[in-house]
Every structure is written in C-alpha cells, then in structure tokens.
Nucleic acid binder design. Structure first.
Lengths: 196, 196
DNA sequence: CGTCTATTTGAATGTACTCAAAAGCGGTGG
DNA sequence: CCACCGCTTTTGAGTACATTCAAATAGACG
C-alpha cells in the first residue's frame, strides 16, 4: 500500500536537490496526508488555495466553470505530479478553480505556511520549487501553442501519445473538455477517424 | 536616455528580494546589454535559447511558425518584463520559438551560465526567479483558461483592457495572432462591433 | 430490472477560415 | 511632388470546423 510512505515524493524532490536524512524528515513532517474519494472536491471555486498538493496515488483534475456552467479542464495530475490553483496560492486571493479527485486519491499537502517555513529552514528548496515551477510553466506554454496551432484531432492525438496512462482513467467528456471541444463533437471525431 | 542604467531591472528584482549595494553591482555585472532594431531577431527557431532577457525599453514578441508557416504569437514583452524560450532555456535543447523586436528595443541579457553563477553566489536569487516564474506561470494558465472559455471578441476585450500600452505598438495582424484569429476575421470583428 | 449518467446521433446553426481581390497607407526615388 | 512599390487592412464569396439543442442509445450500478 505505502500510500503515506514518502518514497515517491522524496524521489520527486531528489530529482532536483539532494537532501540529508534529517532534511528529508524535516520536510516530510511538514506534509499533511490526505485521502479523497472519487469525485470528492479538494478545492472549490471562490476558496483560497492554501496547499500545494502532491499526488501519491489516484488522479485529480483542476477545472473552471464558465458563465454557462460549462466545465473546462485546465490540468490533470497523475501520481508523482503536483496540483494547485497557482494564482490563488501565490496571491492568497480566492481562486476560480475547482480541484476534484477523478479516482480514489492519496495526497500529500504542503501548506503555504509550511512552505514558507521549509524555504526559511532549508533554502535549497527554493531551487526545487523554482525548477518544478519552470517545468510546469513550460508545459503550460506548450499547451497554449497547441491550442493555437493544432486542430482538435491533432490535439487529441498528441494527448493520447503524451498521457497514455490518463486515457484509461478519464471519461470521454473529460478528454473532450481538456482538448477544448464538446462531447458530441469529440464523439463524432472519434467515429470519423475510426479511433474507437 | 539611461537605456543601460540598471534602475529598472533593480527595481524589478527589488520587488521580490532585497539586495545590498555590493550584491546589486555583482548582479548587474553579469548582465549583457543589447540593442535591437525594429524587426531584428533575438532568437531563431532551431537555436538554443541561452539567455533570460529583460526589456529595458521597446517591445518584443515570441512566436512560432506552424506547418503552414503561419505565425502564432505566444507572448509580448513590454519594458520591465522578461522574455525567453523557457523550454529551450531550461533544457538546453534547440527551441521552436522566434523572438523578435517589435520596435527599437534595449535589453539586458542574463545568460544561463551567468544565472548559474548568480544563483551559486547569491542564493536568494533562487527565490526571485521562483517568484518571477510563478507569476509567468499563472499568467500562462490564465491564457489557457481564456482560450478555452472565451470567444474571440471577449479575448480581444480582455487584451485591450489588460495591455492598453501594447495596443498602440502592435499591428492588427499581431493582435489577431495573439488572440488566435486570422487578420481578416479580426478586421470583420472590429467592424461588426464598431471597435474602430 | 430500473435509474442515472455517459455517449451517440440528427438537424440546424454559428463562428471562424480560406482564397482572392481591392483598397489604403507609408516610404522611396525620379 | 507625384508615381510606384510593398505591406497591411478590408471586403466578398464560399466553406469547414465545431456548436447547440434535443432525442435516442448504451453502459454502469444498486
């Protein structure tokens, strides 16, 4: 099971900085384990996102509802990924994103307060979070590029090649929402191109 | 003129960390001033982006050309902003972005090598770059949200409210490319809504 | 088995695109 | 100063991609 063992998150951090045993345990002490059932919300629109959340097992999504209450999925987070409403997290203002478990999910949350303590006590974590943020930023820019320069079909092809693991966990509506089309168009597209 | 005085960039940094006079001068020593004529390229597709570039005056854009050689603008950078092909910068691999001056532009470039030196010598810059990256990341996510949930008209309205300064510097084609429509559609849209 | 939700399909529509041509605009040279 | 060139913007006509709304079908689960 090992849901709340810290191997995965320490390996994640260890890709960017080296920690001593004491530093590792200082870090893990600041984490708050969490457990979410399928469809359970971690964050609601209008709430302040106080945590940077690491996915140990399961899967989550962040999304917003537009004026017509249509869901638009911004990110998925599989195990070994982080999820948050970054804008709310860094400003401390209420956010406009929902974060929800897609399947049963175990998490480790680092609160803003604990992040500040961590950065003060072990400054090399600044480097780690800088690198994590840079990577997430690069991925977000690539998504902007794809949205502008690829067709819906190309966006889907890219998605399934890039995240085959997610494909099996997600409903068609969720994939459609992520690539930016309606479920009915997505269904027609799959049929037309014999992708199902 | 003061194009290569460091007031602007020191104020930019000073919003996130405090520097002593010695630290400030150590930092500015690592910067390479640059000057670009209108339409001059700072970076070409296929090249490695070795610099994080701060805009002192003028304006730049980053864009890519798709399979049909159509230009898609990813970001604009006005004075007091940074620009780079982040993906290429952090991986060291050749990038797929162009970076070009829209008007005559004065810059201060921090090379990857010098950034490493800076981070080693004055570790609190880790914090500064983490924060800069977080903000740029949040802006990029917001753009993804807007692309998914707003109409072309709404994206334009938001753009003109958010960046009135840029409006006067840019051609219609550039604005159209940024909001993700063709110049002809953009022209029709402006006319239809009496926005010109 | 019945209920609930997800997916598919149909028909009509809208948003944005392509290609091509025309008009407007800015600079340059005769 | 005007004529011309090149580039941007506008317009026209036809089209493609994607949407809406509603209904039908299929799956999942108690």
């Amino acid at each position: 099971m090992m849901h709340h063992s810290f191997e995965l998150i320490l390996a994640n951090i260890g890709r960017h900085i080296s920690l001593t045993a004491e530093e590792s345990s200082y870090f893990t002490q600041l984490l708050r384990p969490g457990h979410y059932a399928r469809r359970e919300l971690l964050l609601m629109e209008g709430a302040v996102c106080t945590d940077f959340t690491f996915i140990v097992s399961g899967c989550m999504k962040s999304y917003l509802l537009d004026q017509q209450q249509k869901e638009h999925i911004l990110t998925f987070a599989a195990p070994d990924w982080w999820i948050a409403d970054i804008n709310s997290f860094i400003t401390g203002n209420p956010g406009n994103l929902f974060i929800q478990a897609i399947s049963e999910t175990h998490t480790l949350a680092l609160s803003r307060r604990n992040q500040e303590i961590l950065l003060r006590e072990i400054p090399k974590f600044e480097r780690c979070f800088r690198i994590l943020t840079e990577r997430a930023f690069a991925a977000s820019l690539q998504r902007n590029i794809d949205a502008m320069s690829l067709s819906a079909l190309e966006r889907f092809e890219k998605f399934r090649l890039q995240y085959p693991y997610l494909l099996s966990l997600l409903s068609d509506q969720e994939i459609a929402s992520y690539i930016g089309v309606t479920p009915s168009f997505f269904s027609r597209m799959l049929k037309k191109h014999h992708l199902k």
